[in-house]
Design a protein around this nucleic acid. Structure first.
Length: 479
DNA sequence: CGTCGGAAGT
DNA sequence: TACTTCCGAC
């Protein structure tokens, strides 16, 4: 399905959007770019490779402009960043008529409109398919096609994804490994395609990704799930019930409960994705995490590992108590869509080798430990920063969004051969991002214009206009 | 109530 | 494939 053919046309770009940058409260992390890129690897053992592939990529909307040219990203939509607004409204469909386009739009709309508590963006069911523009990004031209691209390439190009392997917490090293797994995932479709049909399916995050997202979401993080020792990748399901509920929502399994979700979690032990922190209830440890994970400030308890629970620390959620249907999640409501997905089916082409090692354990997180890399890090892609919407409402930083970058990069990756300029552009944007991030605050409004050089086929020539402006924080209120 | 895996189902 | 469901056991 990929429309490579189209590539030839004038090209265009897409827009994307995101807020990644927006959130400031978070800490760590490099720039937006990094964040995204990073999403790529995890050291997990065993199957990492598969995961890699899985990384699905977020879909990007590529538009073709009739006259080629550029796209401008304007900040306009910003104002409405509100929750539901239809930022997307700005997008017009041309007659391209692709269903996909429509779907995308619909999905986007849906996403944007979700306001209900549940809308938790984690449900990114859609996210894979589209980007919702957030503050400052706007899609200017008619959307013609959508593509799903994997970020991997990009990552590779930029080179950065990094996953940190963590050390197993404490004890137990059961070697369970089974090594059986040598199989490869089939890689069905090359990534560019996108599933049509329903947009809502197919893009789910894996449970581990979902948890990572939750851990980066202020709405969920300390409340339902929190780091107990982020450096070690240890987290606690503070409100297991709520987390399970969210997961169920995400998977569209209304009957999901911790028992069930827990089984899935346990399967992760074998796969080397998670370890159980023994002795502490509801506490698990990621074998590895993306290096640029964003940690929400405030979460993280103390570290200590072994013991005590919190006495009063974390109150169990109030929200949960009430039987009211599914309300509890409302808080999480808006995640954005930004995460990178790993859709099960779409994956890039290559496959990895497989190692079956299971031992997850050995690694270290961030620290450059001496032997840290002894094992091959797996590369998986994950997701990163979810936040968006609600969380960030206020500070929007840059406008060059990571998505934009990604998109560009993706575009580049699509075409083999000629991507030079695009790539360059991407790099440029990357720098911009960094810069913006750095200055984010101060920047009031500025517009950057980039010119894409004509790339051979795909990209013809485009001009990007990026406008950065401080978003009006006006309406975003969330809480 | 949480945790653990096997087994079967999706 | 990645869980989801169910389950007996601790």
């Amino acid at each position: 399905m990929v429309d490579q053919q189209h590539q030839k046309q004038d090209f265009l770009v897409l827009t994307a959007v995101s807020n990644c940058l927006k959130r400031r409260g978070q800490v760590t992390t490099t720039g937006p770019l990094a964040a995204y890129t990073s999403s790529s690897r995890i050291e997990t053992v065993k199957k990492r490779k598969q995961l890699d592939e899985h990384l699905a990529s977020p879909a990007v909307i590529v538009e073709q402009v009739p006259h080629s040219h550029l796209l401008s990203y304007s900040g306009l939509a910003c104002e409405q960043t509100h929750t539901d607004d239809h930022l997307l409204t700005t997008v017009e469909c041309s007659e391209s008529g692709d269903e996909e386009t429509m779907e995308t739009l619909v999905a986007a709309e849906t996403l944007l409109n979700m306001d209900s508590p549940e809308s938790l963006s984690l449900d990114q069911q859609h996210y894979t398919q589209l980007y919702v523009p957030s503050l400052g990004d706007v899609i200017t031209s008619p959307v013609t096609h959508q593509l799903m691209v994997s970020v991997e390439d990009i990552v590779g190009a930029l080179g950065q994804p990094q996953w940190v392997t963590l050390q197993r917490e404490t004890v137990a090293e059961q070697p369970k490994k089974r090594g059986k797994k040598s199989k490869r995932p089939e890689s069905p479709t090359p990534d560019i395609t996108f599933k049509r049909g329903k947009y809502s399916k197919g893009n789910t995050l894996y449970l581990w990704q979902f948890l990572i997202e939750l851990l980066q979401d202020r709405q969920a993080c300390p409340r339902y799930i929190k780091w107990t020792n982020r450096h070690a990748g240890i987290f606690k399901l503070v409100n297991s019930k709520a987390v399970a509920r969210l997961w169920g929502k995400h998977k569209n399994k209304p009957d999901m409960n911790y028992e069930t979700m827990g089984r899935a979690l346990r399967y992760y032990y074998q796969r080397g994705i998670l370890n159980k922190v023994e002795g502490q209830r509801l506490v698990y440890q990621f074998a590895s995490l993306p290096k640029d994970m964003v940690f929400i400030s405030g979460d993280e308890d103390q570290e200590d590992q072994g013991n005590h629970e919190d006495g009063g620390d974390v109150p169990d959620d109030p929200e949960e108590s009430p039987p009211s249907s599914d309300q509890s999640l409302y808080d999480l409501a808006s995640y954005e869509h930004s995460f990178p997905p790993l859709p099960p089916s779409s994956r890039p082409g290559y496959q990895r080798s497989r190692q079956s090692s299971c031992s997850p354990a050995t690694a270290q997180w961030h620290q450059p430990g001496p032997e840290s890399e002894s094992r091959s890090p797996a590369q998986r892609r994950t997701v990163l920063r979810p936040l968006g919407g609600s969380l960030i409402q206020q500070q929007h930083l840059p406008i060059v969004s990571a998505e934009m970058l990604r998109t560009l990069q993706n575009v580049q990756s699509l075409q083999t051969g000629q991507h030079g300029s695009v790539f360059r552009t991407a790099q440029l944007l990357g720098s911009m991002c960094e810069r913006q991030a750095a200055t984010a605050e101060q920047t009031t409004s500025q517009i950057v214009t980039l010119q894409l050089q004509p790339v051979t086929c795909p990209v013809k020539q485009g001009k990007l206009e990026v406008k950065t402006e401080e978003a009006p924080n006006s309406g975003l209120t969330r809480e």
